[in-house]
């Protein structure tokens, strides 16, 4: 099985566009990056390596993504901040229609009036599929290495 250069380029575009949408604060676009049938999880490397199922954040339907987006946008209480996703090179394997991709990330967080800090570092482990001629995440597993989260993660990563 091979993946065409065009497909590889589309996969990278998807992963970049996702990060930009979040850094730009366009959370209403977030559920749209996922397939109709989808799973999004933020999982600590500690739990991932031990085979423990707990996620820091778990959405296993489009509805749950929408509810989270609503909570992050309107319900939760937190101060103003900027985020910058720094992405590593995308390592894609699989077939033209179902791609597995691994991408390292670091997120820098800057709170109003404070120093910039690293919120978390880790890797995306994605399963990407083609749905209605567009690539979507069927699974997006965010495995973070960070031992202590500095306070809270107040947006999707």
């Amino acid at each position: 099985m091979t993946i065409s250069p065009e497909r590889r380029s589309e996969v990278t575009d998807l992963i970049n566009a996702y990060a930009l949408a979040i850094d730009d604060g366009e959370l209403e676009r977030w559920p749209g990056f996922f397939a109709a049938d989808c799973v999004y999880k933020i999982v600590s490397k500690e739990n991932f390596d031990s085979g423990l199922p707990l996620a820091l954040l778990l959405c296993d339907s489009q509805g749950m993504l929408a509810d989270r987006m609503e909570a992050f946008s309107k319900l939760n209480v937190f101060g103003p901040r900027s985020w910058r996703h720094m992405l590593g090179a995308v390592h894609a394997t699989g077939s033209e229609d179902e791609i597995s991709a691994r991408t390292n990330f670091v997120i820098f967080e800057t709170l109003a009036g404070k120093d910039t800090h690293i919120l978390c570092a880790g890797e995306y482990r994605d399963v990407i599929v083609s749905e209605k001629d567009a690539l979507k995440f069927r699974e997006r597993l965010c495995v973070y290495d960070t031992t202590m989260i500095p306070n809270s993660i107040v947006r999707p990563i």
Binding site: I42, P53, L54, A55, L56, L57, L58, D60, M64, R68, A71, L75, N76, V77, F78, G79, I149, N151, S152, I153, V154
Partner: peptide, 28 residues
């Protein structure tokens, strides 16, 4: 039941639908 507990865990923790507010307000 395990699936239910894991789903409801969304309420709590460092990205909890409820707990986020606490972490932020205690620091303030």
């Amino acid at each position: 039941m395990t699936a239910r507990r894991l789903r409801q865990a969304n309420l709590m923790g460092p990205s909890g639908l409820v707990s986020i507010d606490d972490g932020q307000i205690l620091e303030r």
